[in-house]
Amino acid sequence: MPRPEPDSPLSCALCVMAKAPLPGLAKTRLAPVLGSTGAAEFAKHLVLHTQEICRQLAGEIDTQWCLSPEPYDPSWRASGLVFTVSRGQGDGDLGQRMGRIARDILEGYDAVMLIGCDCPSLSPDHLRQAVAALQQYDSVMIPALDGGYVLLGLRKYTAEVFRDINWGSEHVAAQTRTALHKAGLEWVELPPLRDIDDAGDLPHLPESLIQQLPPAQQQTIQRLESKGG
């Protein structure tokens, strides 16, 4: 059963997991069609797009950028990206890093939401809906169409939610549901969204983002669309 809705709004932090957009590090599964440098450039556009989403939520949700490598690494200065509030992701696999961040954030906030920069269809309204869900539930998830998830929100830290997950596989969402159930948490799911991982996902980019890409990448996406992805 969902919890009764609190009398006052939750304090909620949005934590964005972001990799430096470097060739060979970011969006490597797109390198076969965009090249290593093109994949890195594309990754930078995804970060910029996510920054704009966060900017639209200023005053509603506090955003913290969780960076890999650490914020002081020269690669971030070289990227030209600037973050108002940032912290390092630290060591470990994705689950260890997200779990540590969630634990730390929940020491100062009522709730935390974790996202990446891979889902350009994620909108400010999706994030507002997720916050509203956390008013009543222990957790909220937005699944990805490939079996992962694009958002996980929590009201309490539970280490098991981030353990024994096959990160990067099509089982992430299902395994996380099992972990939430075993932890005794009540959760709700919003409609699934598509994240952008490989060439087959590129034709599904929002047109507004395609128009921001370099002409060569726009042409590549047009070719993929003409071939049915």
Rank of each mutant, 00 (worst) to 15 (best):
S121C: 09
A133W: 01
L81C: 05
D138Y: 00
S121N: 09
P71S: 11
D146S: 14
C117D: 09
S139G: 13
H126R: 14
Q129C: 07
G108N: 15
Q135V: 11
S139K: 01
L106W: 05
D91N: 06
L114N: 03
Y149F: 15
Y109W: 12
D110C: 12
P143W: 04
P74A: 07
G147L: 10
Q136A: 10
G80M: 07
W76A: 11
G99M: 07
D93R: 06
Q135S: 14
L94S: 10
C117M: 09
E70I: 11
A132R: 09
V131N: 04
G116T: 13
S123F: 02
P74M: 04
A111C: 09
Y137H: 15
L122N: 06
E70F: 01
Q89F: 00
G95M: 06
I101W: 00
D110H: 11
S123W: 03
L151R: 01
G80A: 10
Q129S: 11
P124Q: 08
Q89P: 04
R100C: 11
A133N: 07
M113K: 02
P124V: 10
I105M: 07
G90M: 02
Q129E: 13
P71Y: 05
I101R: 08
Y149M: 13
L127K: 04
S75C: 11
G90K: 06
R100W: 03
L151C: 09
T84F: 04
Y109D: 00
V131T: 15
R100N: 12
Q96F: 00
M98E: 15
R128N: 08
G99I: 07
L106G: 03
A78V: 11
P120H: 08
D138N: 09
G88S: 11
Q89K: 08
C117I: 15
S139L: 12
A130Y: 01
G88Y: 02
L122F: 02
V140Y: 00
R128P: 03
I115G: 02
Q129W: 03
Q129M: 09
Q129N: 12
L81S: 10
S86V: 03
A130H: 00
Q89H: 03
A132P: 00
T84G: 08
